[in-house]
Design a protein around this nucleic acid. Structure first.
Lengths: 244, 244
DNA sequence: CCAGCAGAAAATGTATACATTATCTTTGAC
DNA sequence: GTCAAAGATAATGTATACATTTTCTGCTGG
């Protein structure tokens, strides 16, 4: 466990600063899976009292990053490959539902504009030949915008919150783990066009299926990018391991 | 806002007592939608200090029952009919996914036994003619057991947590099965048999579709049981807001 | 009468002391 | 040497005092 950067930003409340500092430390791998996060240690590391630390830990536990046991404090959860994969499964069905609900309700003017802009931006970005890392990073932003807008247009806060929770599951490799190949990016942008078409055309079922497969394809890319074939096997179907 | 029952049960920590007391009070309708839940008032009502109260409020906010704004505390969320309905939509796709994953992984001996027992218990309960309220209550327990076992057998904690969150939405709890008519209960028990069959037969797609429709049917029953749309609106004080 | 700005009241944010529980260490018996 | 029990240590749970922010109140000026 290394030292944490002091949260001297203190934009608003200490609780929020601590929350982000600890979250960042966790995602940066500063703690081992299963390791206990002692309140007092964080207290001295961060230079605040136990009160905001406790609040932050509780929040992180509610997001699924930590485990909590009364009188025994918080420990870092372990995220198996299986857990990460099923997080994508969950996200796929949730985002599929979002697309369906969006198609049922219809887009408002603002949402329509945002989605069209995202599609145009993507078109522009991918028009010219080769794709650089910078392109990928920019497309990542556009991609997020597209998806977030559809979540919002579904009009369900519960659904929104749950997609957020899915995205809090740490990925084994860094955030941009799935370094998509150029073909993948183009293919996924095509998906966006079709999904938009289905939503605008008020085809709920089609929108749901397209979005579901769209997100599931990320899962496939992730599996493809896993190190050893053995790991892949254990991650995908080999929940066939002996179940007691 | 009425007085709350003192949490003298003191199961283990005060935090947990307060959590359940406040949750119960909310579900019992002791607070108005949008009403602010002041820490100090709860403090005096419950006879504990602010510390466990704050923790409980934060937990309830993470479950989606309360809204939180820094420096402004917690307010009771409003749950429009739309929100409740989409909670069922979400639950339907999540439980559908659970059934699919369960069918892919296969059941272990314990899960198999539990499900078979639940099916047998249901058969016994519904064999004889008329269904009383007591029957309904007992079937509610069996129903919960059946579903919980399938969620567990899916092997994803994230999925489990999310189904739990769906059930925390007021009025969308499975307890409401009690309100079903006799035909509905029988039909839903038949569903259980078929879902079990699909899981045991390792038919993921069929299991998902059956479970999805099974849960969605609860939504339909709910909608059917609603008074006229106009009455609903006035009763819930939730005018469907115009989408800009 | 209303708008707007103090000042007061009250609410939440934070630190800290103390209580309770868990965990570690030491000691003693076998 | 191992095990167990008792005390010591350290962790979390809780209460409370104080700090900061919000919210209410009432005044003043127009």
């Amino acid at each position: 466990m290394a030292a944490l950067p002091a949260p001297e930003t203190s934009s608003s409340t200490r609780f929020e600063s601590v929350l982000e500092a600890v979250r960042a430390a966790i995602l940066a791998g500063e703690f081992e899976p299963g390791e206990r996060l002692h309140e007092v240690k964080l207290t001295t590391l961060l230079g605040v009292s136990r009160t905001p630390v406790r609040a932050a830990l509780q929040k992180l536990a509610s997001e699924g990053l930590l485990d909590y046991t009364p009188n025994r404090g918080y420990t870092l959860r372990e995220f198996s490959i299986d857990e990460v994969i099923s997080a994508y499964e969950v996200r796929a069905v949730l985002e599929g539902l979002a697309a369906r609900l969006s198609a049922e309700r219809g887009l408002n003017v603002s949402e329509m504009g945002t989605l069209q802009q995202a599609l145009r931006d993507g078109d522009d970005l991918l028009r010219n030949g080769h794709i650089t890392d910078e392109h990928r990073s920019e497309y990542s932003r556009i991609n997020a915008c597209f998806h977030v807008t559809i979540h919002a247009s579904a009009g369900s806060r519960l659904l929104n919150d749950m997609v957020y929770l899915c995205q809090q599951v740490p990925v084994s490799s860094p955030r941009n783990v799935v370094a998509f190949e150029e073909g993948d990016v183009r293919r996924r942008h095509e998906d966006h066009h079709r999904i938009f078409e289905a939503i605008v055309g008020r085809e709920p079922w089609r929108a749901e299926m397209l979005m579901r497969d769209h997100v599931a394809s990320v899962k496939s890319s992730l599996i493809r990018s896993l190190p050893s074939p053995a790991a892949v096997q254990s991650a995908t179907k080999t929940a066939r391991r002996l179940r007691r």
